[in-house]
Computed example of a mutant assay.
Amino acid sequence: MTSIVRDETIRSGEPRVEGTRIAVRDIKRRVIDAEEDPHVVAGEYGISMADLFGALAHYYEHRDAFEDDEREAERMRRDGERRTRKLVDELRGENAGSTEDAA
Rank of each mutant, 00 (worst) to 15 (best):
R75S: 01
V24A: 00
G19T: 04
V41S: 04
D33A: 13
E67F: 00
R82G: 04
R85G: 08
S98Y: 02
A103C: 10
R30Q: 15
I22R: 11
V40D: 15
E35G: 06
H62K: 10
D89C: 00
D7C: 07
A34S: 13
R82N: 10
H62L: 06
H39Y: 05
H58T: 04
N95S: 11
Y60S: 03
E35C: 12
G93I: 10
I10S: 01
A23Y: 05
D68Q: 14
A102P: 07
D69G: 14
R63L: 07
E18L: 03
V24S: 03
E94C: 08
G13T: 07
D79G: 08
D7A: 03
R63N: 06
T84R: 13
D26T: 03
V88D: 10
E100V: 05
E70A: 15
E100W: 05
H58K: 05
D89W: 01
F53L: 03
R63T: 10
A50Y: 11
N95E: 11
Y60E: 11
I47H: 13
V17N: 02
P38L: 05
D64I: 09
M76E: 15
M76C: 08
V5K: 15
M76G: 00
E70Y: 11
F66I: 03
T84F: 12
T2Q: 02
R85N: 06
E94Y: 07
E94P: 07
P15T: 09
M49I: 12
V41M: 12
T20C: 07
T9F: 10
G19C: 04
E36Q: 14
I10W: 14
Y60L: 01
F53P: 01
P15E: 05
S48F: 08
I4D: 03
S12Y: 14
H39M: 09
P38G: 09
V17I: 15
E94F: 10
K86G: 02
E67W: 07
G97C: 02
T2C: 02
R16K: 08
G46Q: 02
E81W: 00
E72V: 06
K86D: 03
E72H: 09
V17Y: 08
I32H: 04
R83T: 12
I47R: 14
R71G: 02
V40W: 13
F53G: 06
A73C: 04
M49V: 08
I22N: 00
G46E: 03
R16Q: 04
A57M: 04
D33L: 06
E100A: 15
I4Q: 05
G97T: 00
V5S: 09
R75W: 00
R29I: 00
P15Y: 00
R75L: 06
A102F: 10
A73T: 00
L52R: 02
A23R: 10
G54W: 09
E8S: 14
L87S: 11
M49W: 01
R25D: 08
A96M: 04
E90I: 05
R77K: 15
M49F: 04
D33Q: 13
T84A: 11
A103G: 09
T20Y: 01
H39L: 05
V40F: 07
L87G: 01
R6S: 13
D37I: 01
D64V: 02
R71H: 13
P38N: 09
A55C: 06
R25Q: 05
R25K: 07
G46S: 03
F53C: 04
T20S: 15
D69Q: 04
D64F: 07
G80P: 06
D101W: 14
T99Q: 14
